[in-house]
Computed example of a mutant assay.
Amino acid sequence: MTVVPSSTSTSLTFAQMSELAAAKGNTLKLKYFPFHGMVEAARFLVYTSGEKYEFVHPEAWPEDKVNTPFGVLPVLNIITESGDNLELAELAVIENFLAKRSGFLGNSVWEESIISMIVSSTSTVFDKYIVMVIRSPDSIRQELLDRWLDLTLPEWIKYHEQYLINSGNTGYYLKGSNEVSLAEIKTATLLPAIMKIAEKREYFSEEKTPALFKVLETAKKHPEYARWLASEEYKDYTAKNIALLGF
């Protein structure tokens, strides 16, 4: 079995790789399964990057695990104009890289850190659902789902509502901001799925969770995000997500 190296550009220095990765005119290839899963925000950032792009799906999984840096998806390949292949794995790293290139990661090191903190919190609550519930044996899945619904999710709702209210309840996580960042995009991409999973608990409404609803509406009004939601690619992934996962 052949293991593909993490980058075919092993002769390049990190300084050269950094310059090539930041340049325009690259082709972005994001590899993940053919549904939204956790990567809708990353796909949006690829879509709105202004670069040529391709959403790639594994042909054989888990056999293809050996051809990824850490045996997981997503993987982002950046094909430069000179033909070099730069590779990144791990979703949080891919999101931050793409968000920074496209102006969705704030305007300072501190803003970047706060946005990353918020995204980490939102990613974690959904990660726990995937790991605890989706990947659990059928015999204990309902018990673990109830635990996630009764304990994990209400805490996320409580603290995000409070954080947003403390920030002015404007639809933006950063106080005084009027720019959509990865923080709003990440919440907007996962919130509809979370609402569907928890619909019987009636946790969400404009009365109960007004701040989170305002974030969702703020993201939807962003021109590029609205264009993504209207795209055929988005609709196709949504249909496959519903068929596979029910949301």
Rank of each mutant, 00 (worst) to 15 (best):
S49V: 12
R101T: 08
L98S: 05
L216R: 01
T2F: 14
N77L: 05
V119A: 05
S136E: 12
I165G: 06
L212Q: 04
I78A: 06
A42K: 05
S116Q: 04
L88N: 09
Q162Y: 07
Y172M: 13
A230L: 07
V119I: 12
I242S: 02
G171I: 13
D84W: 13
K100I: 01
A226V: 02
E224P: 02
N77D: 12
F213S: 09
G171Q: 14
K158H: 15
K65W: 07
S9P: 00
F44Y: 09
S6N: 14
F70C: 01
V93I: 11
T27M: 07
L28Y: 14
L88H: 04
F247Q: 06
G246I: 02
S231Q: 05
L98M: 03
T8E: 09
W228C: 02
K196C: 01
A211C: 14
L86N: 08
G171P: 11
T187V: 12
K221M: 02
E179S: 08
K240A: 01
L76V: 05
L145G: 10
G50M: 11
D138E: 15
F14Y: 05
L144S: 11
K52Q: 14
R43P: 03
E87F: 05
P74A: 06
A22T: 11
N178Y: 00
S167Y: 07
L164C: 08
R147L: 13
F33S: 02
S120E: 12
S177K: 10
E207R: 14
L76D: 07
A22M: 07
E179K: 15
I94S: 08
S49P: 04
A239N: 01
H160F: 13
H57L: 01
Y32Q: 03
G176D: 03
M117D: 12
A239V: 01
E155G: 15
N96Y: 10
R43K: 03
N169V: 14
Q16W: 13
E224G: 02
W156E: 15
F70D: 03
D64N: 03
I140Y: 13
Q16G: 09
N77M: 07
T68S: 02
A99E: 05
E232I: 00
F104Q: 01
T238G: 02
K65D: 12
D64Q: 11
G25D: 10
K24V: 06
I114Q: 13
L190N: 10
L151Y: 15
F204D: 04
S121I: 04
A211I: 08
F14H: 06
A219E: 02
L190C: 14
K29D: 08
M1T: 13
F247D: 04
E233Y: 06
V133T: 13
G176M: 15
E54H: 01
E40C: 01
Y203Q: 09
A23Y: 15
N26D: 09
T122V: 12
Y32A: 06
G176N: 13
N67K: 15
A99M: 02
P5S: 15
H57G: 03
H57Q: 10
L45A: 10
